[in-house]
């Protein structure tokens, strides 16, 4: 049994909040550079130029790349041989969010109650997903999630007979309906299988993968490619101004499902596909 003081979670989360918001990952930068080179629409090319320039300013001046610094969504993979000591696990993570958003000059975007809508003032609470895994390490993944793209999410309880075509049509329709709203070029997270609540979680997890890294199963890698091509034929383009690059990547996460079901979910990220990892 390894003891981990929860204050380590607080300091790690605080640093990750600023890092995720200031520094756009190399995987995304490469995808934007490819877009700049290959986009056929002049206004679309101009969008890629602006996004690359924006990423450079954010990194160099240590400011958030987007004013929507997101809901702090945190995935924790806790080793089963870890014993957390020194305080409350969830409170330690929330304290990290509180400190990171305050010291990093990040926007506080969370309201206490969905209907009464008073700002909590410190961007807490975080959404925390916990997996217990073998070992004595703790892996933290922070993925700040913007509201505009989150609003374009969709879940559909497809049925087995709808098959590949039903899935592809559903994903393309969700991205088409979203249009310019989620700030294309987008990253498309697709969940497939599980249950109603599991499939939404899968779609979110799919967004954590590095851009350009295909699904390990060649069948799903091929399907990701097919869906991406379909999406990029819509013509929506960067920022919805028209063009070939509506999405930078499609990532799928798949889980077994019931003989009667085929749940599917779409969760979109804007180009600011922010996610950082730490292992304690």
């Amino acid at each position: 049994m390894r003891e981990v003081n929860v204050s380590l979670l607080t300091s790690a989360v605080a640093e990750m909040c600023t890092e995720a918001n200031y520094i756009l990952g190399d995987d995304v930068i490469r995808a934007l550079e490819k877009g700049l080179e290959e986009e056929v629409s002049p206004t679309g090319k101009d969008v890629f130029r602006q996004l690359l320039e924006n990423a450079r300013i954010a990194r160099e001046e240590q400011v958030p790349m987007c004013q929507d610094t997101g809901f702090a969504v945190i995935f924790v993979e806790a080793g089963q041989d870890v014993h957390f000591v020194g305080g409350n696990f969830g409170e330690a993570i929330n304290e990290g969010v509180r400190q990171g958003y305050e010291s990093g000059f990040l926007r506080k975007s969370i309201v206490k109650d969905p209907l009464q809508r008073e700002n909590t003032g410190d961007n807490t609470p975080a959404v925390i997903h916990i997996d217990i895994v073998p070992g004595d390490k703790v892996k933290l993944i922070l993925a700040p999630k913007g509201g505009g793209s989150e609003n374009m999410s969709a879940v559909k309880m497809l049925t087995p007979s709808q098959g590949v075509k039903g899935l592809v049509d559903f994903v393309v329709a969700a991205v088409t309906r979203a249009g310019a709203n989620p700030c294309p070029p987008v990253v498309v997270g697709v969940g497939l299988g599980g249950t109603f609540e599991k499939v939404a979680h899968l779609a979110k997890k799919a967004l954590l993968r590095s851009l350009g890294q295909p699904h390990p199963d060649p069948f799903y890698a091929g399907l990701e490619k097919e869906i991406l091509e379909r999406i990029n034929r819509t013509g929506i383009g960067p920022q919805g101004f028209g063009g070939r690059f509506t999405a930078l990547a499609v990532h799928m996460e798949v889980f077994p499902c019931h003989i009667a079901t085929m749940p599917a979910a779409v969760n979109l990220n804007c180009h600011a596909s922010r996610h950082v990892e730490r292992t304690i």
Binding site: Q50, L51, E53, N54, V63, C66, D68, C183, Q239, C270
Partner: peptide, 13 residues
């Protein structure tokens, strides 16, 4: 009009 979504650091200038 639309400004470039996601370019908040650039637009702030």
């Amino acid at each position: 009009l639309a400004a470039t979504g996601g370019a908040g650091a650039l637009l702030s200038r």
